[in-house]
Simulated assay, not measured.
Amino acid sequence: MSSKETVFFTGGAGFIGLHVVPMLLEKDYKVRIFDNMFRGDREAVAALGDDVELIDQDVRYGGSVHAAMKGCSKVIHAAAVSINKSQADPHESMDINMIGNHNVFAAAAEHGVDRLVYCSSASVYGDPERLPMHEDDKLLPITPYCIAKRAGEDLLAYYQRRANLSWVALRFFNVYGPGQKTTAYYTSVINHFVNRIKNGEPPVIDGKGEQSMDFIHVHDIARSVVLALESEQANVPVNVGTGIDTSIADLARILIDAVGADVEPQFNPRDVLVGRRAADTTRAKEVLGFEPTIDVRTGMTELIRGQ
């Protein structure tokens, strides 16, 4: 029998998971990935080695989750349907995100795991009333995805009270990096800009480009997950961002510099709802000992030049 601890990782074959798993292996964990492989990368999982097991199943089936979690001491729950898809098909979104959350949390409570790390989202805030966004701010989730993420945090608190489940909910801001899917709104913006810039065409920005996001590199996201798995403090939501809001206009200029093109952004004058995002990172530092290591200019430049 191996003395290594096993981490149960839902959605572990996806974009973020494939950055987290190697870090877990470095820390001498075994990993049991539980993923329906709808967006998972089977070849990448196979290349991770003998200490990684893949269970091709769906979090909607509570019996499967419960059986597969047996023998695991820690849980990372990342399986979810994306924001865009949740609006296109709210029924499927509720099924996977809400029922899936409950199946994983209930199983973790019953198995008495040491720690559950939940991949939540900064989208639970909705349109923030102030910047930077703090964990104790009002939550106004807008889409079925965001609503399920918020409900997941409430469910964790329930199982903490009922079964002493130890948890950390990580509210990820705008994640980017190698291996990202092009379907998320902001990654499609990045790809659209880069394609135009590489063709010698200017990126076209609606309004003045004042809309902003807090772009956090997937390497730092992965670090935060491992830190949350082992942190002494628990039972709180934690923002994972850089604390810096990068406007769409600034992003376009970073990408132009990364490609090395001689173009200027074009602005399409129209009324745009200016949304802004920036994380208050105080709690991440206090609870997890986490600070981001990759700034947006460095991360985006490496991403573009590595393509």
Rank of each mutant, 00 (worst) to 15 (best):
S64K: 12
H66L: 09
K74H: 14
M69A: 13
L48D: 03
G62M: 02
V59W: 01
R60A: 04
Y61S: 09
D89A: 08
V59Q: 02
Y61Q: 08
C72D: 13
M69V: 15
C72E: 14
V59F: 03
G71R: 08
A68M: 04
K74A: 13
G49C: 01
E92I: 02
Y61R: 07
V52E: 00
A47Y: 05
Q57V: 11
L54G: 05
E92T: 06
K85C: 12
A68T: 03
G63Y: 03
V59N: 02
G49L: 00
S64A: 14
V65D: 05
I76S: 08
K70D: 05
S86D: 07
I55V: 09
D51H: 04
A79W: 00
D89N: 10
S73N: 14
V75C: 14
K85Q: 12
D50E: 04
V81C: 05
E53D: 05
L54A: 03
S93G: 02
V65F: 03
Q87F: 10
L54T: 07
I76A: 06
E53V: 05
I55K: 04
A80S: 04
A78I: 06
V81M: 13
C72S: 15
A78D: 11
V81Y: 05
N84H: 06
K74G: 14
D51R: 01
K74E: 14
N84T: 08
H77N: 14
A67W: 09
Q57D: 14
A88H: 07
V59Y: 00
H91Y: 10
A88V: 08
V65M: 05
V52L: 01
A78S: 07
L54C: 09
Y61H: 09
S86P: 09
S82V: 08
A88T: 11
G71M: 13
Q57K: 15
M69Q: 14
E92V: 06
H91C: 10
A79Y: 00
I76Q: 11
V75G: 12
V65S: 07
P90C: 11
L54V: 07
S82E: 12
D58K: 08
A79L: 01
Y61W: 03
S86H: 10
G63V: 05
H77G: 10
Q57Y: 09
V75S: 13
Q57M: 15
R60T: 05
V52W: 03
A68E: 01
H66Y: 05
N84I: 06
I76N: 07
Q57F: 12
G49F: 00
C72P: 15
M69H: 13
H66C: 08
E92M: 06
A67C: 04
Q87A: 06
D58A: 11
G71C: 10
R60D: 11
V75Q: 15
M69Y: 11
L48N: 03
A78E: 13
S82Y: 09
N84P: 08
L48Q: 01
H91P: 13
P90F: 13
G49T: 00
K70L: 11
I83C: 05
E53K: 07
V52C: 04
D56M: 10
Y61D: 14
M69D: 13
A80E: 02
A47V: 02
P90Y: 11
V52P: 00
Y61A: 08
K85N: 15
N84M: 07
I55P: 06
I76G: 09
H66E: 08
S73V: 15
V75R: 14
V81N: 04
